[in-house]
Design a protein around this nucleic acid. Sequence first.
RNA 1: GUGGGUAUAGCUCAGCUGGUUAGAGCGCCAGAUUGUGGCUCUGGAGGCCAAGAGUUCGAAUCUCUUUACUCACC
Length: 373
Amino acid sequence: MSKRFDYKVIHICKQTGARVGELTTPHGKIITPVFMPVGTQATVKSLSPEELNDARASIILSNTYHLYMRPGHKLVEKAGGLHEFMAWDKPILTDSGGFQVFSLADLNKITDDGVTFRSHLDGSKHLFTPEKAMEIQESLGADIIMAFDQCTKYGTSHKDARAAMERTLAWLERCVDYKSRDDQILFPIVQGNMYKDLRIESLKRTVEFAECGIAIGGLSVGEPKEIMYELLDEMRPHLPENMPRYLMGVGSPDCLVEGFLRGIDMMDCVLPTRIARNGTAFSSNGRIVVRNAAYKEDFSPLDENCDCYCCRNYSKAYLRHLINADEILGGRMLSLHNISYLIRLTERIREAILADRFGDFCEEFRNSPEYKN
RNA sequence: GUGGGUAUAGCUCAGCUGGUUAGAGCGCCAGAUUGUGGCUCUGGAGGCCAAGAGUUCGAAUCUCUUUACUCACC
């Protein structure tokens, strides 16, 4: 493994076994557990790097498929790479485009070689292979790059789930073979749908390829949360101790707590920015649908316990006005707040782990209105 | 004053020659959103169809009167 990456566990909670750790990358250190905001198109929608810093984001995500389609990975490479292009000098993780195979399913065809896409932008045909996904991610230059995987729907048969798992493993080998840069680390992805035997097999075989991080994909695709928690419990004894474990695409407040409790170290989610743009905010008192009439004359901040720019300056009544008038600042401020809220939640979790009281924290959290965010 | 037009949901309007619980868009009220194809999606409330009288088995729709608004001309 490249010397430019390192992960060390700083503390293991005596109550729960959850960890606080430190992941070193060429663009700085990340303290885990960590929540990673998503910036699909080389921007965390509506927020500047300065604002992300204000929210104390330590790493953000971007996306291979979307940047390949527009503006093109070669252009980003010409710009000096993704960090330079988007003026973000902290760590970046790029998703491989595997999830777009899944979410844009009606626009593609999957074979062992790869996936033939029809662009959602202009309908043009493109072939995505593990090699192509690596080539693009090397052009983009993120610190953490993801293996090209095949995600399956909730409800997929065991047979199909196994086929996708095998294909994901075969693709993983090709990703590893193609990878050339030593300033990037490749995270392989565990699949296996909702089947415990497949999940464990996938995990055991995937760990062999993991250098400084492993990801669990294909969860939170419509299944009840209890199923996801059970699968995480099943996988937990088989997770590697010496590297961060990344649960992909999961990040509602309750899932963050339940995931970190089960030994997960990294999570990302579009939820905070997506619901923000549609006028909803997380808070200590549960979810706030800001446009609701209840806040018409509520001149208090979204969350009394939040220290973000939005909560320091604006009232619910004002934010409601902005959202209802479809003013850009509304979605922006709610995005800033929601991301700040989730990052602050991970900080509280870290503190609880360090104090060996994360179990107590979980119990309190589950009984608080925050759990219903 | 004379002649014409309009009056249907909070707003802007559809409702053809009369036929069961009168519609749309916007607004309002509420819900959804989990590796972002999202100014998105899903629900809900809200109308004595200007008022009165008539014709008819049956009227938002036809006739008459009144009222309000509006346009043109004196």
